[in-house]
Amino acid sequence: MNNELITADLVDLDLRVPDRHAAVRGLAERLVTAGRVTDLEWFVADVAEREKQMATGMRGGIGIPHCRSAAVTAPTLAFGRCPEGVDFGAEDGPARLVFLIAAPEGGDSEHMSVLAALARRLVRAEFTRTLLEATEPSEIAEYVRREVSP
């Protein structure tokens, strides 16, 4: 199985959804297809659980739904770009970039370091700008992989 953090299949450059639940579900379906999530409902419920604790939207039009779930097989990122925006509870309005981060339950730290590297990139303006401007899913997957590689 491909163990990359993200592949072109996990990128949706035109994610048109009514709300954040639909956004999560849409991206989660890609995770299931890619074999990274074993149980869609279970995983979506775990993400919702995390979202309840604190909204994951942040300034600059970014939503970062994420969770650790036993339904996840490997640390994975699914990325969606929403031209119309979708509300993730940030103060300055809806998110145009959605990062769905799936982490396996009880993964060892070496495993998880790729997600840590990803999270650090999320607060870099250049990273998000590149993702806003990219035109091809494969371009995005490659860029993210290169950025988080140790």
Partner: peptide, 16 residues
């Protein structure tokens, strides 16, 4: 709480 995203984002933001 989850130790996946915000822990590292906060670290990066503070460092910047």
């Amino acid at each position: 709480p989850t130790g996946i995203a915000h822990t590292y984002m906060a670290a990066e933001a503070l460092e910047q």
